[in-house]
């Protein structure tokens, strides 16, 4: 029997900033390359899709204008998201998507845009934008995995007591630039500020999410290695490069010549 993975891409039109659609492409290709059949379901605002039909749901970040449209639509889907999560659907939300999975986003003027509260976090607008490469660590089946990404946000997200951060920041700001946490996790729901896209340079994390999504169908699948040669090289190089970039601020650097 061939395996089939159904990926729901939530709001591909509205939440399309910072290349997060790459996460969908990466999950899709990595499953296909192993002979797993993949169905990608686009879910735009007002589309009637039962998210329980998806093994994994992916959400990206968007501009403020788009995000408020999503916030409204998401309220309508709240029960359905909860049902899907209860049925074992994996949810991966980045940046704006992450904020909307929390309790609320408080804007600079004090207005609270409600989220859907599947993660026990809340976000408050901040003055300083947190921008740059991020190196963080998370746990994958008992092993510590280094995760590389890029953050660009001014919202500060705080975790309610008892809420598990998804990662710990090694370099960068993470949730709020203060407590060293990055992202949040509750069961099969994952939120993070990391773009890049997140899964591009973190292939083990991508595969781990695919396995988690397949578990839902009662499948304990061992995924074959894909020889992630460029990914490994990129990780090694970026770790070194981040140290180099730390001291770099000037707008008029070099011409690429050494």
């Amino acid at each position: 029997m061939t395996l089939k993975l159904t990926i729901g891409h939530l709001y591909p039109d509205l939440l399309d900033l910072y290349s997060d659609r790459g996460n969908v492409m990466i999950l899709e290709k990595r499953a296909r390359w192993r002979g797993i059949e993949v169905d990608v379901v686009r879910v735009d605002a007002a589309d009637a899709v039962d998210l329980r039909s998806c093994d994994v749901v992916v959400m990206g970040g968007g501009m403020d204008r788009e995000q408020s449209l999503v916030a409204r639509d998401l309220q309508v889907r709240r029960t359905n998201v909860e049902q899907a999560v209860a049925s074992g659907t994996v949810v991966l939300a980045i940046c704006g998507g992450y904020q909307l999975l929390g309790e609320y986003f408080e804007t600079g003027s004090g207005e609270r845009i409600p989220g859907i509260g599947v993660l026990d976090v809340y976000t408050v607008a901040g003055e300083r934008r947190m921008v740059g490469n991020v190196m963080a660590e998370c746990d994958l089946d008992g092993q510590t995995e280094t995760v590389f990404g890029y953050e660009n946000h001014s919202g500060r997200t705080y975790l309610r007591p008892g809420t598990e951060p998804w990662m710990r920041v090694v370099r960068g700001d993470g949730n709020n630039g203060g407590d060293g946490t990055e992202g949040a996790r509750k069961g099969r729901v994952f939120g993070t500020y990391l773009h890049g896209p997140l899964l591009a340079k973190n292939p083990r994390l991508a595969d781990w999410l695919i396995r988690l999504a397949l578990e839902r169908q009662g499948v304990q699948e061992r995924l074959d290695g894909l020889g992630d040669r460029w990914e490994e090289a990129a990780r090694e190089h970026l770790a070194r490069r981040m140290a180099e970039l730390d001291g770099m601020e000037s707008p008029h650097v070099g011409t690429g010549k050494k």
């Binding site: 790459g22 740059g132 008029h252």
Partner: peptide, 18 residues
């Protein structure tokens, strides 16, 4: 394809995925 991430290029290279 030459991809740099100096300030004048933009330090975020994720745009290639768009």
């Amino acid at each position: 394809l030459v991809l740099n991430d100096l300030y004048a290029d933009g330090t975020d290279v994720s745009w290639i995925w768009d």
